[in-house]
Design a protein around this nucleic acid. Structure first.
Length: 310
DNA sequence: CGCTTTTGACCCGCGC
DNA sequence: GCGCGGGTCAAAAGCG
């Protein structure tokens, strides 16, 4: 598996320079949900801007795609994905980064202080320094078609809040990693447009390399596919169109991210700040990034200049 | 008994 | 300044 992953990551890196790539599922990499699966051929395509996580998941409609994204180009060789076809989670998922709000906040506050993080651990009721906005961790979000809200990802989470989502009948749940000193959080909510789609947003990095053993109480169901979600204003991923068809398609090649041809990802290119933001995002996101990093794969998928961001 | 979930209250940032 | 919505806290309840 490891070898296969490495191979896959390499191909991923190779494809970055050609504007499209395949990427194994973060859950797969997390090592907790390795099942038998179909090889990946081509996947759904997604917009670059979306890949960058410009989409604000909180704003409905989350899946309004103005125009279809370019076709995905994924080599057949990149079939590392072994996905169990569980009855609970049928494929189709898309992921998106929630960098928009984060970016907005960072623009207004250039101070990145660890103090902020510590402050967050303190009581929220405590008055905060006026000039220090809360520093938000990079986020990594993805959508999963699943009947269960809380997908097991190898870590233990404690729910610390739940809020009703505006314009949505489904509440949003807030979870924190139960490991001491690990401030990773995640939010789980269902898409109001498609109740079968669960939107999970990770925030922060796990400070512990080894995920705890999954508990039986949580659903141990991996997403069948992961695709970065598009920004409504940018490229799009027709998640809701011909679901059965795309579902079947994606089951054949799940766990692939795709950059449209319009995305020039060559090292020589000059990534926009948002791109850097989002890439850092991907590299630091929860389990996926942690594992990638732990396995020394980070450099394979993220340009050096982006890694500097961290 | 210890851990997790629930839930109402509170704080904060943002838009108007 | 005010209202709204997102995010978090913490006491109480639930559960194994």
């Amino acid at each position: 598996m490891e070898t296969e992953n490495s191979t896959e990551i390499s191909s991923f890196a190779d494809q970055i320079s050609t504007s499209s790539f395949a990427f194994s599922s973060i859950f797969d990499l997390a090592g907790d949900h390795v099942g038998a699966g179909a090889p990946g051929k081509s996947g759904s395509s997604l917009g670059f801007m979306e890949l960058l996580g410009i989409q604000d998941l909180g704003d409905p409609p989350a899946f309004d795609f103005p125009e279809p994204a370019p076709a995905l180009q994924v080599p057949e060789s990149s079939d590392i994905t072994n996905l169990p076809a569980t009855p609970n989670s049928s494929s189709i998922s898309s992921s998106s980064t929630e960098a928009a709000t984060e970016e907005r906040q960072q623009k207004s506050s250039t101070t990145v202080v660890e103090e902020e993080e510590q402050e967050k651990t303190k009581k929220a009721l405590k008055p905060k320094k006026k000039n220090q906005k809360r520093e938000r961790e990079p986020r990594f979000a993805f959508m999963t078609k699943s009947e269960v809200d809380h997908l097991e990802d190898g870590y233990r989470w404690r729910k610390y809040g739940q809020k009703a989502v505006k314009n949505s009948p489904f509440p949003r749940s807030y979870y924190r990693c139960t490991s001491a000193m690990c401030g990773v959080k995640k939010r789980v909510e269902r898409s109001c447009d498609d109740p079968t789609i669960v939107v999970t947003t990770y925030e922060g990095q796990h400070t512990h390399s080894s995920p705890v053993a999954p508990r039986g109480s949580t659903a141990s169901i991996p997403p069948d596919s992961l695709v970065f979600a598009p920004d409504p204003t940018g490229f799009s991923l027709p998640l809701q169109t011909s679901q059965s068809h795309s579902l079947q398609q994606q089951q054949q090649h799940p766990y692939f991210f795709n950059f449209p041809p319009s995305m020039n990802f060559s090292p020589s290119s000059d990534p926009t700040p948002s791109l850097l933001q989002d890439m850092r995002f991907c590299t630091s996101a929860a389990a996926a990034a942690t594992l990638l990093r732990d396995h020394g794969l980070l450099q394979d998928i993220v340009p050096a200049e982006m890694r500097k961001e961290e």
